[in-house]
Design a protein around this nucleic acid. Structure first.
Length: 186
DNA sequence: GCGACGATTGGCT
DNA sequence: GCCAATCGTCGCC
């Protein structure tokens, strides 16, 4: 059984589909990544479109690190930095199928249903207790644990969600038929 | 210094 | 389906 490490120095839309089916944990809590979105400095939906800033600095840093940002003043969202350093690209983790630490997640989320624990970027942040202190940290070190999918995965692609620009790019990727997606693909 | 807005969610109509 | 909540960041005055 061989495991091929994910090469985060590739463009985000190349890395993104490879993350579907990977196992991801924060302090031992997490599961299977079932939905992601790619962002790149070259397109206006990306936080990095207007160049480096205090907020998006981590996305211009080393590939394979975390980019954590506050969304709508409420939610913490997690991205994996991609492409060569300085490129300003990343992959947003939008949904996870929970496998480890279900009870901890239920407590953090305040809901019981498995489908509501990690289906959506803000929910992932709350369930895995993503905090701003994780910004810029390497995914190969604590508290993270990432292991690539070891079997072929049926990945579907479509337009990204919740954006008003670059709607033409099919840079949302998901595990086909998964009930843990934040929204179904059509 | 200040105001507009967002890679969202959950509750109400 | 619609809309308020909520606040850090950015752009502009």
């Amino acid at each position: 059984m061989k495991s091929i490490a994910i090469d985060f120095s590739q463009p985000s839309h190349i890395v993104a589909p490879q993350l579907i089916g990977a196992h991801f944990f924060v302090n031992g809590v997490g599961g299977v990544i079932v939905e992601v979105e790619a962002y790149d400095q070259s397109e206006p939906a990306s936080h990095t479109f207007s160049g480096p800033s205090v907020r998006n600095m981590a996305m211009f840093g080393a590939p394979g690190c975390a980019y954590v940002y506050r969304s709508y003043g409420i939610h913490w969202c997690l991205n994996f930095v991609c492409a060569p350093e300085g490129h300003g690209a990343g992959v947003l983790i939008r949904a996870i199928q929970p496998t480890q630490g279900l009870d901890v997640m239920r407590e953090r989320r305040g809901v019981d249903a498995e489908k509501l624990l990690c289906s959506g970027p803000g929910r992932v942040g709350q369930a895995l207790e993503i905090v701003h202190a994780f910004n810029g940290r390497s995914l190969t070190q604590k508290p993270f644990h990432l292991s690539p999918a070891m079997t072929p995965i049926d990945v579907v692609a479509g337009p990204r969600i919740g954006i008003s620009k670059a709607m033409d790019l099919p840079w949302r990727f998901g595990l086909a038929g998964s009930p843990f997606l934040s929204k179904p693909f059509r």
